[in-house]
């Protein structure tokens, strides 16, 4: 399930809804991304997330489908916010549920790694010196690249 929204989300309520009426789930893994107050050593006053409505939902759904094709998932959820956020606020929730923990852990990391390099979101930070667009990080590309190869057959 995919949601792109301006408002905050309740992690507990989201996870409860995701696993409700699905007793086959043995493991649930969740990642929550937050606005950090420091960037490049500078204090961040606020952050604004811009996105590409339409393509964002489409791309997130495509990434989620890729995870479902690679791991035996019972349920998954991506909630990503946009708009102006203060330090400490939640930006994104990725949750995956599976019969066993390994699939939940791996697919959760896969989703956030791919999301960061493929979903059309852009961050603008506000510092004491004004607003600036955040540059993509090579580390994020590397994190996404390690999922590039199809899962080995032995993992099936």
């Amino acid at each position: 399930m995919i949601r792109v929204q301006r408002q905050d989300f309740d992690v507990g309520a989201e996870l409860a809804a995701l696993t409700r009426d699905n007793p086959g789930i043995g493991g649930l893994c969740a990642f929550v991304g937050l606005v950090r107050d420091l960037s490049g050593g500078e204090r961040i006053q606020a952050m604004t997330l811009e996105h590409y409505p339409g393509m964002t939902e489409r791309e997130l759904a495509r990434i989620e489908a890729e995870a479902a094709a690679r791991w035996p998932l019972a349920a998954s959820l991506i909630v990503h916010r946009y708009g102006r956020l203060d330090p400490g606020e939640r930006i994104v929730l990725v949750a995956t549920a599976a019969p066993h923990r390994q699939a939940a852990f791996e697919s959760c990391q896969f989703l956030i790694d791919w999301l960061k390099t493929k979903a059309p979101f852009w961050k603008q930070e506000e510092t004491a010196d004004g607003a600036r667009w955040v540059e993509a990080r090579a580390e994020d590309d590397q994190a996404a690249d390690r999922w590039q190869d199809p899962r080995p057959e032995a993992a099936e």
Partner: peptide, 15 residues
């Protein structure tokens, strides 16, 4: 659509 490399997900940019 034309845009820079994307920067979604958690944390505010590079640390």
């Amino acid at each position: 659509a034309f845009f820079p490399p994307v920067t979604g997900g958690g944390a505010a940019g590079g640390g």
